[in-house]
């Protein structure tokens, strides 16, 4: 079995905000409610779910861009959440992030060459000449012309900017990349270019990915394992063919059936109409999904189902699959 690169255990992050006037009340958003999963070295691990399910918060908490409330994140045996500032600087070279919006993820006033050289200068990764050479090599690697160095972000298209964002993440030589919806803002033809680029990098450098997406088709193509999130919790985890061919959790089934397929013979099935979708601010008691679940029973309305490992690497939190 492959080495475990990253282990996330009972990671929790609640946000609080004051809402309302003139009588403000404090609301708690349960963005991450004790999620656990593991990423193997060289693997692309998909984190899927709909908006507000906490998948982006998960990615950011793992990198400590958001400080989690509790839980453990272990990277190659080292507890990340316990690392001090100096150690964190070193660890940041190992774990990088690629963002969804290629327009917001680059400093508009920074030339590409500088933006790519800066991380290496800050971390002292080579002499100025070596860094120059490395910038050139990185541009070639992500498929951009060498003179891109002298240009500003606004001179590039969305797909090219995403390539720049990927090159920037690669500057410090990471082993794990958190890719937060990296192709969602792109057109279909550009999307496949970027996916192929990421796949190439995975193969060539043995990179591991946490691939956050709402698009099941993209995750199926890119990832080897997947965790499905609903309102701050993971409801199902498993290897790619298994989850798609035989989804266990009713929510996974609903996602799978609702996802459009470019084939008119396979009409997507809308879920039985379930009313207003609940939010992570005030998730329903019991199993969070019971308000939309066609199989919900009394126990689902009262008790959150325990996690159950149904096969090696395959787990689900649903009373239907309880022991």
């Amino acid at each position: 079995m492959a080495e475990i690169l990253l282990a996330v255990e009972r990671l929790k992050k609640f946000f609080t905000a004051k809402r309302g006037f003139p009588n403000p009340e404090t609301v708690t958003v349960r963005a991450l409610d004790e999620i656990s999963f593991m990423v193997k070295r060289g693997e692309a691990f998909g984190l899927v779910g709909e908006s507000g399910c906490g998948k982006s918060t998960a990615g950011r908490s793992i990198l400590r861009l958001v400080e989690p409330d509790s839980g453990r994140v272990t990277y190659a045996g080292e507890d990340i959440l316990a690392a001090d500032a100096a150690r964190m600087r070193v660890l940041r070279q190992k774990m990088q992030i690629v963002f969804q919006d290629p327009y917001a993820s680059l400093n508009p006033r920074r030339m590409i060459g500088k933006a790519l050289a800066e991380p290496m200068l800050v971390h002292g990764l080579g002499t100025p000449t070596e860094i120059e050479e490395r910038v050139e090599a990185l541009l070639a690697e992500v498929g951009l012309p060498p003179d891109s160095r002298w240009r500003f972000p606004h001179e590039f298209s969305g797909g090219q900017r995403q390539r720049i964002g990927i090159a920037r993440a690669l500057t410090v030589g990471p082993e794990l990349v958190v890719a937060d919806e990296p192709v969602s803002a792109l057109d279909v033809s550009i999307q496949s270019q970027i996916l192929l680029l990421l796949r190439g990098l995975q193969d060539k450098h043995g990179l591991s990915f946490i691939f956050i997406s709402h698009d099941l088709g993209v995750v199926r193509w890119f990832c080897q394992s997947i965790a499905v999130m609903y309102l701050g919790r993971i409801v199902e985890i498993g290897p790619i063919p298994g989850i798609f061919d035989e989804p266990l959790h009713p929510y996974t089934q609903m996602l799978r059936r609702s996802s459009p397929v470019p084939d008119p013979e396979i009409r997507i099935e809308p879920a039985r109409f379930g009313g207003e979708v609940p939010s992570a601010v005030n998730p329903p008691a019991g199993c969070h999904f019971h308000t939309r679940c066609p199989h919900a029973t009394d126990i689902c309305r009262q008790i959150y189902p325990a996690w159950r490992e149904v096969a090696p690497g395959r787990g689900v939190a649903c009373h239907l699959h309880g022991s």
Binding site: Q191, L195, D215, I266
Partner: peptide, 16 residues
């Protein structure tokens, strides 16, 4: 060039 949810696609086409 569309990754599909219903089946495994081995080769993804791109438009350069």
């Amino acid at each position: 060039s569309i990754p599909r949810v219903d089946r495994h696609v081995s080769h993804l086409e791109t438009i350069e």
